[in-house]
Simulated assay, not measured.
Amino acid sequence: MTAGLVLGVDIGGTALRAALVRADGSSPFPLVDVPRGPDLRGQLAETADGLIGPAIAAGMPVTGAGIAVPGHLDPLTGLVSSAPGAEDLIGLDPRDIDLGPVHVTHVVNDANAALIGEWLHGAARGAHSALGVFVGTGVGGGLVAGGALFAGSSGTAGEVGHMPILPDGPRCPCGGRGCLQQLASGTAVARWYGERTGQPVAGAAAVAAAARAGDPLAREAFVRAGEWLGVGIATAVNLLNTEIVVVGGGMAAAWDLFGPRLTRTANRLTMPATAAACRIVPTALGRRAGVVGAALAPGPMPGALMKHGTGDEDDR
């Protein structure tokens, strides 16, 4: 385990989160959770300074930093080669990011980071196999198999958000059609609701507020998302036979609106013996999952573990 404090930074599609993290996953100071600004590098430096300065003044050493990015690092160069929602990171060597007195020791994909956080200190703690499904701006995923993070041959294992669920469905930026994230992400919930009300919608959080205020169309938007997520999770669990599925990301704040349908649908479509051996649970760490995972991910991380696709959790 990591000695001292490690700065964990989770760069999302619309938010930036950071915290100083102990080896047990706890933090001596509150989580920084702010909207991403136009000057990402400057914001990172300012955020790091605001956390590291008080820690050093209090006599708490900070030994390094880990960063979660919503994209893919080239396994040969180590440079960010794609970053949906964070295009200003493309071409960047994350180890060159200036975080003041500490150095970036490792970088990991954001969905992998969130699963690592849940696996080490959250809902999937101690699991031999686990699938993470992180629903926010998009739908990201990660996979633990055999007691270790499994990335696959090109680093994209666990990418549940890009499973084709509806072959003639909406086009996805990945180049496919009908991907799960086009049907069940926070963005998809807001889009579906907005199309039917004819009103602009700020995001899934606004739809959730309307649903809790009694709007039946808003509730239907979340039930539909839960149905599609249940289909996707059943497909993945039938293939992978994991012992737990952790559902996190920004949409997890509305678990009461979509979780029951998700669970019922997944259990109905999963083979009985497989379903009996698998629990589907919401995140235990919430918005801290990616930060904890970024800080405590095994490092330095090889390029093969840096995968494409964001589960960014920011659509609240």
Rank of each mutant, 00 (worst) to 15 (best):
74 D>W: 00
160 V>S: 02
176 G>S: 11
281 V>E: 15
4 G>V: 04
95 R>H: 15
152 G>C: 08
157 A>R: 10
241 N>H: 14
246 V>E: 13
282 P>M: 01
180 L>G: 02
74 D>F: 09
129 S>C: 02
21 V>S: 05
62 V>C: 03
148 A>H: 14
196 R>K: 14
254 A>E: 09
19 A>D: 13
118 E>M: 05
305 L>F: 15
150 F>H: 15
126 G>P: 00
103 H>V: 14
69 V>N: 01
298 P>M: 08
135 V>F: 02
181 Q>A: 12
13 G>S: 09
232 G>R: 10
285 L>E: 00
160 V>D: 10
67 I>W: 02
21 V>F: 04
107 V>T: 15
266 A>D: 05
196 R>G: 12
72 H>V: 02
115 L>Y: 03
93 D>L: 12
187 T>G: 01
95 R>M: 14
305 L>K: 13
99 L>W: 02
32 V>F: 05
26 S>P: 04
259 G>K: 01
282 P>V: 08
229 L>A: 09
13 G>R: 05
23 A>K: 02
104 V>N: 00
198 G>Q: 02
68 A>S: 10
190 A>R: 10
80 V>I: 15
80 V>P: 04
118 E>V: 01
201 V>R: 13
124 A>Y: 13
149 L>G: 05
156 T>W: 14
193 Y>E: 06
205 A>D: 15
311 G>E: 04
23 A>L: 00
46 E>G: 13
68 A>R: 10
288 R>H: 14
289 A>Q: 02
282 P>E: 04
13 G>W: 03
40 L>E: 06
4 G>M: 08
148 A>L: 10
97 I>Y: 00
61 P>A: 14
203 G>R: 01
210 A>P: 09
125 R>L: 11
68 A>M: 01
59 G>P: 04
78 G>R: 13
181 Q>S: 13
275 A>V: 06
3 A>Y: 12
226 G>H: 14
183 L>Y: 04
280 I>N: 01
295 A>V: 00
232 G>V: 03
197 T>L: 07
162 H>L: 07
264 R>M: 13
223 V>T: 15
286 G>P: 12
204 A>L: 03
278 C>S: 13
111 A>P: 03
304 A>Y: 08
256 D>N: 05
118 E>P: 09
267 N>H: 14
96 D>P: 07
107 V>W: 11
136 G>H: 09
252 A>L: 07
305 L>V: 14
300 P>M: 10
249 G>W: 08
137 T>R: 08
67 I>Q: 00
91 G>P: 05
301 M>L: 15
144 V>R: 01
43 Q>E: 08
215 D>M: 03
132 G>Q: 01
282 P>C: 06
100 G>I: 09
230 G>D: 03
36 R>S: 03
158 G>P: 08
245 V>N: 01
10 D>H: 03
150 F>M: 08
256 D>L: 05
49 D>C: 12
106 H>V: 07
174 C>Y: 06
73 L>K: 07
